[in-house]
């Protein structure tokens, strides 16, 4: 994306989807920006050993 296009984007009303840390969602919400939060976490909280067990059971 060129710089001009980014500038164009910020000239419009922003549609924000927050994924992961809820703090960012809350900050925007407190500033009264429309925002949707997706409650996402990495598989098994990022625990590689557990991820490997889960993949063996597929």
């Amino acid at each position: 994306m060129t710089k001009t296009k980014i500038n164009e984007l910020f000239d419009k009303e922003l549609k924000i989807i927050n994924i992961g840390l809820e703090t960012f969602y809350r900050d925007l919400k407190n500033q009264e920006h429309p925002v949707i939060h997706v409650d996402w976490r990495p598989t098994a909280g990022g625990n590689k050993k557990m991820e490997s067990f889960l993949s063996k059971l597929q």
Binding site: N47, K49, M50, F53, L54, K56, L57
Partner: peptide, 18 residues
């Protein structure tokens, strides 16, 4: 839950099911 999952996988491996 993690220990149970590990035991489950270990059991299947021991039995030759994985």
């Amino acid at each position: 839950f993690e220990d149970a999952l590990e035991a489950f996988v270990n059991r299947l491996e021991k039995e030759g099911n994985l």
